[in-house]
């Protein structure tokens, strides 16, 4: 087992333009280094051996959290630790902090970035499902110019996303959910630092105590983060009464296809996946005002 990465050339651009130029020059031979908490372990195991590493850690434009009207705009290189400390982010969408605190461990959260978490395309990452619940959009820059892709359209499979070679995620734009919305992120894991055995996020709003809008998304329960659209639709107009809740959980389980691994069999992970959906829904409803 090697734990020394293969040799590479290191680049530390100071601007997004400089970074995209480097990516365009080196194409498939370049990888972006964000916080490095996923990529560096992969390089140590030689599961990744990029010839050029483009460290985007010195690009000031990729930092910062701002409220812009009805949107929260978070720079891609914002670390999980910075996100957790941001009152602006937590006031607007408290599910961000709740989910962030469940990622890895303190040291990894000081280095690990929100952009890296959502752009890596690892189905075990937690933020993709959160961004799907919030209906976030990803701002992307490439040699051809800027474009925006919705989180709900971004994920294609394990390590496969809408991000093309040469492109870089620059920021995440989150429409601020209405005041009084309910939210929860439930993650079952074997220990702190582990990826989810199963996890589910919920963002909902209520009217007269009944669910008016609802988004449910799942982490590590398929080859990518998935939005449980049918499950959420079942719950509109309900207050999670038994028959509707059971139907929603069944609909969520129907789209789960977790791999059998050291965290459990496909059957077990699907079973607890349903439990995570139920817990997240109950906690989100209890928090909702309206």
């Amino acid at each position: 087992m090697s734990v020394i990465p293969a040799p590479f050339s290191y680049h530390r651009p100071k601007s997004i333009a400089e970074a995209t130029a480097l990516l365009a020059e080196h194409n498939d031979e370049a990888r972006i280094l964000a916080g490095g908490q996923s990529l560096i372990p992969m390089m140590k195991f030689r599961l990744a051996a990029p010839e050029h590493l483009v460290d985007v850690g010195a690009i000031a434009e990729l930092k910062g959290i701002q409220r812009v009207g009805d949107a929260l705009v978070i720079g891609a290189m914002t670390t999980q630790h910075e996100l957790q400390l941001s009152k602006t982010a937590t006031d607007a969408a408290p599910i961000l902090k709740e989910a962030s605190l469940l990622i890895a461990d303190p040291q990894v959260r000081y280095m690990g970035t929100l952009g890296g978490n959502v752009a890596n395309g690892d189905p075990g990452n937690d933020m993709p499902a959160v961004m799907m619940c919030l209906d976030a959009a990803y701002r992307i820059m490439g040699a051809a110019g800027p474009r925006t892709v919705k989180a709900r359209d971004f994920y294609e499979g394990t390590y496969a996303t809408a991000l093309a070679t040469g492109e870089i995620l620059t920021a995440i734009e989150i429409p601020v959910p209405p005041a009084g919305h309910g939210y929860a992120y439930e993650k079952l894991k074997r220990k702190i630092g582990d990826y989810a055995t199963a996890a589910a996020g919920v963002v909902l709003t209520t009217r007269g105590g009944r669910i008016a809008t609802c988004a449910i998304a799942l982490s590590n329960l398929a080859d990518k983060a998935v939005l449980a659209t049918d499950a959420a639709a079942t719950l509109i107009g309900t207050a999670l009464e038994k028959p509707a809740l059971d139907k929603a959980i069944a609909a969520a389980r129907a789209i789960m296809s977790p791999a059998a691994d050291t965290r459990g069999t496909t059957e077990y992970r699907t079973a607890v996946g349903g439990v995570m959906v139920e817990r997240a829904l109950r906690r989100a409803l209890a928090r909702a005002k309206g």
Binding site: V3, G36, I40, D55, G57, Q107, V108, Y110, M111
Partner: peptide, 15 residues
């Protein structure tokens, strides 16, 4: 000002 695992940072990043 951050606690980091130095097995998961390149020395060049610490410049």
């Amino acid at each position: 000002g951050k606690s980091v695992k130095s097995c998961t940072v390149f020395a060049v990043q610490a410049d």
